[in-house]
Simulated scan of single mutants.
Amino acid sequence: MHITLITPAPRGSRAGNRATAERWARLLRASGHRTRIITEYDAEPTDLLVALHAWRSSESVRQYRAHTPSGPLIVALTGTDIYRFQQTHPEATRYSMAEADALIGLHERVADDIPREFHNRLHTIFQSAEPLPSRRAPVQSRFDVVVIGHLRDEKDSLRTAWAARQLPQESRLNVIQLGRAHDDEWQALAEQEARENPRFDWKGELPRWQVRRHMAKARLMVISSVMEGGANVVSEACVAGLPVIASDIPGNVGLLGGDYPGTYPVEDTTALREQLLRAENEPEFLAALQGRVEARAPLFRPEAEQAALERVVNAVMDQYGKENQT
């Protein structure tokens, strides 16, 4: 079967949508399908269209429906679709959701935040991650905490650095921030923080292998986002056995589990500080976090994602076949 994937992120982009599209294309090819990735619908024949991002791909969905009114369509919902564009651009976002034969959510709490009318077409697919080659011995003189992701509003990117400013002098905690600034304002904020905060080390955008090396040596990862559709970096941490402290947004809780002990109220610097201190000073707490992420790791293995993706494709194509029997 020929499957076309649409992502608004162009070739070479390090945006999450592009990474997801490329990974899904590989997994679908491994299942025997032919795949291609485009940024806009181009009317080329395809057996199935998979659109990543309900709002940003809405024009492609319109063009596809105009060209192929009953063609099979899957729409993957991003964090901004669910937690922003449903409110700010409801017509285009809901149009894509309504036209889809299946919706894909990337964490297990998406149903709580989309209209009930779409629940019967929602499927959960956890994004997978490859294991790190090996965990490395951490730097003994520091307690390194890694924060990964482009610096932007949705990520609340400097929250960990601000929490680190409040730590007692004897703390060994050091924040290693990886990711480029989204714009000039974030660039200036990060540069200022690096000058003023001795516990903050901003590395900027690094090649993937260097990001994985930092993860392999870190003692802890923080994901401080105010909205997420299901961040792949959480999957990577779980597969790597890297303990996580996360904001208590649905996109994090829906990956780590509802009773995960390493969460804090979103945008609450003091609460994050307390969690960081516990992780640094209470070995049993850090071990508990590690045990919990390791227990979630099987959810994020490539074979699990491939099987889940194939189930959705088969369900859509089976329904399409039944509706078009003559």
Rank of each mutant, 00 (worst) to 15 (best):
D268G: 08
Q127T: 06
A307Q: 13
R208F: 07
F85H: 10
F126M: 06
Y95W: 09
P261R: 11
H2T: 14
E284C: 00
N232H: 04
A66H: 09
L28P: 05
Y264V: 05
E185D: 09
L103H: 10
I37P: 09
A102I: 08
E303T: 03
S225R: 10
A21L: 09
L173Q: 00
D248L: 05
Y320A: 11
A216I: 03
L189F: 14
D47I: 00
H214T: 04
A304F: 01
N197W: 05
H2G: 00
R62M: 12
T4S: 15
Q127A: 03
E196F: 04
A15V: 00
A297Q: 01
E236V: 05
T20Y: 11
T4E: 14
A218T: 10
R11Y: 12
R219I: 01
P243S: 10
L289F: 10
V139K: 11
L178Y: 00
M221L: 15
T35F: 07
A19N: 11
V145A: 02
L255K: 12
A100R: 03
R121W: 13
L167F: 07
E305H: 08
D156G: 05
A76F: 02
L289G: 00
Q166D: 14
W162M: 10
L122T: 09
G258V: 10
G230N: 11
N197H: 08
N281V: 00
R213H: 13
H89K: 15
R116F: 08
Q325D: 03
P243T: 08
G257D: 12
E193S: 10
R195Q: 06
A295E: 12
R65M: 04
G12L: 01
N252I: 04
E196R: 04
W55P: 01
L48Y: 02
A21Q: 09
A190Y: 04
E196A: 07
E305M: 11
R292T: 02
G251S: 04
Q306M: 08
G16R: 10
D259P: 04
Q127Y: 05
